[in-house]
Amino acid sequence: MEPKKRFIEIVQQLRTLIREEQIKEGDKLPSERVLSERLQVGRSAVREALRSLELLGLIETKHGGGTFLSTSPQHKLIEVLATFIMNDKKSITDVHATRLLHEQEAIRVICRNEKMRQLPVWESLFIRLEVKENVVRKDVLREIMIACDNRLALRIWLQLEAYSGKPMYGFITVQEKPYVLTLVKALQLGLEQEALQAHLAWVHHNTEKGDKEHGDS
């Protein structure tokens, strides 16, 4: 099963379990072992889903104390977003558009902030791409979201990315590499318009490629 479907399926099962068990904010969740048995999935799959939910702020892990349903004020907003994404199968276009808006705004923030532009991650990404190392698409975009230093935006983006599925998990191809190299270099130099245009060109390239692959299938 592809990552998107597995993630959504397990999260839906967890949501059902939380509702049926009447687990409230601040209450402890069952252990990984128990969840694995209850949901009839492997512990690694449960662990992956819990890690994603923690990044989204829906649960909190206390060292040596277990996992708890989050009491964060952000919990409600992310829960609404998660419900929309997981229950409305016609929302995929809106998901992509909303993810794009978050990425574009993060690029603007980075280009206007000297400290963010000088982060070593950009040079590291540039070198990895130049030496033809395999780089996953979502990793580049995630670094952009992390660098803009907005935790709520990052959590929302992670939920959107999880639903975007297979294309985000693929490696950057030779054809799309020029767009990404331009994007990374523009971020370093603070060239806002160039960075935004490179990002859009990269997104459009992948969208067109995905449409062609879908049409051939």
Rank of each mutant, 00 (worst) to 15 (best):
Glu192Val: 04
Glu21Lys: 05
Lys209Ile: 12
Gln104Phe: 11
Asp139Asn: 08
Thr83Lys: 13
Val184Gly: 03
Gln175Cys: 03
Gln12Trp: 02
Arg155Glu: 07
Gln13Val: 05
His205Arg: 03
Glu2Asn: 09
Met86Thr: 07
Glu54Pro: 10
Arg128Thr: 02
Ile144Tyr: 00
Glu213Asn: 12
Lys209Trp: 05
Met1Ile: 10
Leu17Asn: 06
His214Gly: 03
Leu154Gln: 08
Val203Phe: 07
Ile8Ser: 09
Gly170Phe: 11
His63Gln: 09
Ala198Tyr: 13
Arg112Asp: 07
Tyr169Ile: 08
Arg108Gly: 02
Gln13Glu: 15
Leu81Tyr: 15
Glu133Asp: 08
Leu77Ile: 15
Lys185Ala: 01
Glu54Leu: 07
Ala186Ser: 07
Gln159Pro: 01
Gln40Ser: 11
Ile172Gln: 03
Gln22Arg: 14
Tyr179Gly: 01
Ala153Cys: 05
Asn113Phe: 11
Phe126Asp: 15
Lys4Val: 06
Val131Met: 01
Ser91Leu: 13
Leu81His: 12
Leu189Met: 09
Glu2Lys: 14
Ala147Val: 10
Leu39Arg: 11
Leu101Phe: 10
Leu69Met: 12
Ala82Gly: 07
Arg38Phe: 09
Leu17Tyr: 15
Leu191Gly: 03
Asn134His: 07
Thr182Asp: 00
Gln118Tyr: 02
Ser91Phe: 14
Val140Gln: 00
Gln175Gly: 00
Arg142Ala: 03
Leu181Val: 02
Lys209Pro: 01
Gly42Ile: 13
His75Ser: 04
Glu176Phe: 09
Val95Trp: 06
Gly57Ser: 07
Tyr179Thr: 02
Ala97Gln: 14
Lys62Val: 15
His205Trp: 15
Tyr163Pro: 00
Val80His: 14
Thr207Tyr: 11
Gln40Lys: 14
Asp94Thr: 15
Glu32Thr: 10
Ile85Leu: 11
Glu130Ile: 01
Val121Thr: 12
Val95Tyr: 04
Glu54Asn: 10
Leu160Trp: 07
Lys138Glu: 14
Ala198Lys: 06
Phe126Met: 11
Asp27Asn: 12
Val11Glu: 13
Met1Cys: 04
Val109Trp: 04
His63Thr: 14
Lys177Ser: 08
Ile107Ala: 03
Arg112Ala: 06
Leu35His: 09
Ile8Gly: 01
Leu181Ala: 03
Tyr163His: 12
Ser70Val: 15
Arg155Val: 00
Lys166Arg: 08
Gly165Leu: 02
Ser91Gln: 09
Arg108Val: 04
Leu183Gln: 07
Phe126Gly: 01
Val180Pro: 03
Leu77Met: 08
Ile23Gln: 04
Gln74Ser: 05
Thr98Phe: 05
Leu100Phe: 09
Val180Thr: 07
Met168Glu: 12
Arg112Pro: 02
Tyr179Ser: 02
Leu183Gly: 01
Asn87His: 14
Glu192Phe: 04
Leu50Ser: 02
His63Pro: 01
Arg33Cys: 04
Thr71Val: 09
Lys138His: 08
Gln188Trp: 08
Gln104Trp: 03
Gly65Ser: 11
Glu192Ala: 01
His199Leu: 12
Glu133Cys: 00
Arg99Leu: 11
Glu21Ala: 05
Ile78Asp: 06
Ile107Asn: 04
Lys76His: 12
Ser70Arg: 05
Leu50Thr: 05
Leu191Asp: 14
Lys5Glu: 13
